[in-house]
Computed example of a mutant assay.
Amino acid sequence: MKYIRRSTDRGVVDFGWLQSKHSFSFGNYYDPKHMGISALRVINDDMVMPGQGFGTHGHRDMEIISYVTEGALKHEDSEGNKHIVPAGDVQRMSAGSGVMHSEYNASTTEPVKFFQIWIQPNKMGVKPGYEQKAIPQNGPLTPLVTPTGENGTLAMNQNARMSRLVLSEAEGFTLASNENIAYLHIVKGALEVNGDTFAEGDAFAIDPAQALNIQATADLEALWFELPAMQ
């Protein structure tokens, strides 16, 4: 394995209204050993309290993906998009030449949990864009975001892919990186690979042209990123 990131070693933020675990350096958390993998710059495991959220703020030249696991997000942006993003939906916003947006918990009674993911684009200054979709699982590994939006996926401005891996307990699967660097982040459940056990919040990267045989040791959901070998 190229890189292992344990859940317990992540940066922890608690602002009361926001509780977050940062896989990579972000905001007030900085560790030069954990700056991202290839074009993948941010994976924040966020929980936002009822009625709270991120007020209007700006971004540019970043592909920002939200993957909601519990509750719902309320999104508004300067391009006129106003949406509710429920659990199970995937949201992709291309900040491009510049966009202002806000993300709030859509509920006043229940927290929302979601992954905030940033991927550095390969095209700068593009027109901002927004997509949101519920993509049903189709086999163990289902693409969610791809460079071209193929086969009903969302599209992003980078030669990268984000897929959802779902396995039942004791089910095996071979992860292959092909010509890419690849990174697996466990959303829930656990797996075993090469005698090592990885559980919720754990992650690892593998080199190009590497294959790993994994086995779920509990019902598993994970995000699988295929990333440019050079960035």
Rank of each mutant, 00 (worst) to 15 (best):
83 H>V: 13
84 I>T: 15
86 P>R: 08
86 P>H: 07
88 G>C: 00
89 D>T: 14
89 D>C: 13
89 D>H: 15
90 V>M: 08
91 Q>V: 04
92 R>N: 09
92 R>G: 02
93 M>L: 10
93 M>T: 11
94 S>A: 03
95 A>Q: 08
95 A>C: 12
96 G>I: 01
97 S>C: 07
97 S>E: 08
99 V>H: 00
99 V>Y: 02
100 M>N: 13
100 M>Q: 14
101 H>T: 13
104 Y>Q: 05
105 N>A: 10
105 N>W: 06
105 N>C: 12
106 A>W: 03
106 A>P: 03
107 S>N: 06
109 T>Q: 07
112 V>W: 09
115 F>T: 01
115 F>W: 02
119 I>V: 15
119 I>A: 05
119 I>S: 06
119 I>K: 09
120 Q>F: 11
121 P>F: 03
121 P>E: 04
122 N>S: 15
123 K>Y: 11
124 M>Q: 15
124 M>R: 15
125 G>K: 12
126 V>F: 12
127 K>N: 07
129 G>K: 12
130 Y>M: 00
130 Y>L: 07
131 E>V: 08
133 K>Q: 05
133 K>M: 07
135 I>L: 08
138 N>H: 12
140 P>C: 05
140 P>H: 15
141 L>R: 00
144 L>P: 05
146 T>F: 06
146 T>W: 12
147 P>S: 13
147 P>Y: 11
149 G>C: 06
149 G>M: 05
149 G>D: 11
149 G>P: 00
150 E>P: 10
150 E>L: 12
151 N>F: 12
154 L>M: 01
154 L>E: 06
155 A>D: 03
155 A>Q: 15
157 N>I: 13
158 Q>H: 08
159 N>W: 09
161 R>P: 01
162 M>R: 03
162 M>G: 01
162 M>I: 01
163 S>P: 01
163 S>L: 01
165 L>F: 00
165 L>K: 01
165 L>C: 08
165 L>G: 02
165 L>P: 00
165 L>N: 05
166 V>S: 08
167 L>K: 10
170 A>K: 15
174 T>V: 15
174 T>L: 13
175 L>R: 09
175 L>Y: 08
175 L>T: 02
176 A>W: 13
179 E>H: 12
179 E>N: 13
181 I>T: 14
183 Y>R: 02
183 Y>N: 02
184 L>H: 04
184 L>Q: 02
185 H>D: 03
186 I>C: 00
188 K>T: 13
188 K>R: 13
189 G>E: 10
189 G>Y: 01
190 A>P: 05
190 A>V: 00
190 A>R: 00
191 L>G: 01
192 E>H: 07
192 E>Q: 11
193 V>A: 02
193 V>E: 10
194 N>P: 07
194 N>V: 02
194 N>K: 13
195 G>V: 04
195 G>R: 05
195 G>E: 11
196 D>M: 09
197 T>Y: 10
197 T>E: 12
197 T>D: 11
199 A>I: 13
203 A>F: 01
204 F>L: 03
205 A>S: 05
205 A>Q: 00
207 D>K: 10
210 Q>A: 09
211 A>C: 12
